[in-house]
Amino acid sequence: MADSNTVATPKTAESKPLFGKRERRLLVDPINDNNPITVQVLGICSALAITTQVSPAVVMTIAVIFVMGFANLFTSLLRHSIPKQVRMIIMLIIIAFLVTVVELSLKAINYPIYQELSVFIGLIITNCIIMGRLEAFAMADKPWPSFLDGVGNAMGYGAILIIVAFFRELFGSGSLMGWELFGPGPQFMINTEAHWWLSWYMPNNLMVLSASALFVIGILIWIHRAWNRKLIDVS
């Protein structure tokens, strides 16, 4: 699905104890075998509404990688001093703190994208993958593997996000990252004669509607499981 060779960073790969076989698996596994969206069914909530275009999806991916990596790191550092009964609230506060940092910096760096993402940046807090990984991994493991697990899961999540956004933007508005590729965009509506090479495609409005994200993910799951047959739901 996503190419796995971009994952291993050559810099850390050299230092043997810091980036061994287990660490690599932590990073690569969530992209295919243990993908947060298509296998674990986590984190669908805040993701799908922002996949109509590629650039918000990329921003969202970066934000989630940051939040998830550090939330896992901090929780793992604090794991011995968190009482079991109130761990939910403590985890949420760690996540909420990181999300506030992301929100304020995005507001300062790129205001148009911030407005486009609106409440969905805030909804990273309730993104179930983050809670799920904190609960399942960071509460029980050392800081460095936890950090890698967070980054890996966020990348698996982001990979799906960007694939979905790619198809939705390409077929829905005939563009990629805002660049007009084909289809009569707003500026070509009048003079189609001069831009005939762009106007052969009629954008499919279904792909802009929210329902299409579900279809695209459903089909992605179909392809993923047909290719990786051990994931098929037997029940």
Partner: peptide
């Protein structure tokens, strides 16, 4: 339902159809 689509995949597509209905 085709094997790979069973369960989660089908749930997504059904939700999409319901979404269109609600639209």
């Amino acid at each position: 339902v085709p094997g790979p689509l069973r369960g989660l995949g089908m749930a997504f597509i059904l939700t999409g159809l319901m979404g269109i209905g609600f639209m």
